[in-house]
Design a protein around this nucleic acid. Structure first.
Lengths: 186, 186
DNA sequence: CCCAGGTGTTAACGGTGCTCACATCTATTC
DNA sequence: GAATAGATGTGAGCACCGTTAACACCTGGG
């Protein structure tokens, strides 16, 4: 019944192998470059095999995005529990750095085509992640809803603008310092 | 040589018809739903015809995004030249409302896959749009670069979060009022 | 008048996501 | 310890997509 450990089923436990390989391909090639055939070949399995574990390509992408939100939640909780001097700023910085170091995964997490009809799992994962965000922020300082939304928008927009290379760095300018400066400017 | 007006070439002037139909399909179906074959059929032309006017599907999308940036520029200049009481807030509101009322076009304008290698036209159009934005902002108030970037990030993030339905409206809450509140909170 | 070339068509190629019938393996049951 | 039921992987193939090539057409300039 339950998958007994260290006894590979048929070829090993796919699904996990698929997800791991998919994450690597995603970060290297982008979402458009993640094809089921390439993915299957990377894991050493036939092209139809992934369909035993994922209903469709979209379902595979959804699973990737869900793990992305889980990692995101973990990162936010970690920095919050380290009780930094300025929790708001520290979490904002973590938010942006997460986006920058998981570029394509972050983009996938907010990909519009995923939340088009169906896909309630994604929505739930996103809500869970932002609930922890809201909870942590609300716990550390009594911020009004509007201010919290404004901070969220600023940090999210900064992430995307940096990700897309819209914000040009000046000569010899440090990305991390710029992030801190922008977050610091209330 | 040069295209003389009001004399339809072969079947009318494609390219313009393609762009207009593509804009409609894009807004209705999203970028993924915009296929060259469907587009060609919508205009009443064969599947290969668009390739006389666009090198590839990506080039077609780029052209759409460029017109998006032009419209965006126009909207920003229009509100700026109306010299409102609070220019910063007025432009921010226009920014967000533009995103909301041109959802898929806005997403396309910032689509990551478009600016991947090549596509200098898109980059130029985006830079032009943001140059007018920067110019207008800098002209009306002496805002420092950091503050300007922070405002841009906030407004851009707010647009995307609203677009993706991440920000939940409370019962009987007005979207436009919420936008104004968030923008107003410095 | 004719002809160079811009415009549209038809047919096809490779590649994709996806499905179906079939093979194979695992885990339970007697 | 076989037999069996169900989960897992395979191979072939479908429909569709973006793209290209060879061909037909129509138009404007010499």
């Amino acid at each position: 019944m339950s998958t007994s450990l260290n006894s590979p089923y048929h070829h090993g436990n796919l699904r996990q192998a698929l997800l791991e390989a998919a994450l690597i391909i995603l970060e290297k090639e982008g979402e458009a470059g993640l094809g089921l055939r390439d993915l299957a070949r990377a894991v050493g399995v036939s092209a139809a095999a992934p369909y035993r574990h994922f209903d469709s390509r979209a379902a595979l992408l959804e699973a990737l995005a869900v793990t992305g939100f889980q990692r995101f939640s973990a990162a936010m909780e970690a920095v919050a529990s380290s009780s930094p001097a300025d929790p708001m700023a520290a979490m904002g910085k973590t938010y942006v750095l997460f986006a920058l170091s998981n570029a394509n995964l972050f983009r996938l997490m907010f990909s519009p085509q995923l939340k088009k009809d169906g896909r309630p799992g994604l929505r739930m994962a996103a809500d869970a992640a932002f609930d922890t965000l809201r909870h942590v922020v609300g716990g550390d300082m009594q911020t009004g809803r509007i201010k919290a939304l404004a901070a969220w928008a600023k940090v999210h927009g900064l992430s995307i603008l940096l990700l897309d290379g819209q914000i040009a760095l000046r000569a010899g300018e440090d990305t991390e310092a710029l992030i801190a400066e922008i977050i610091g400017s209330l």
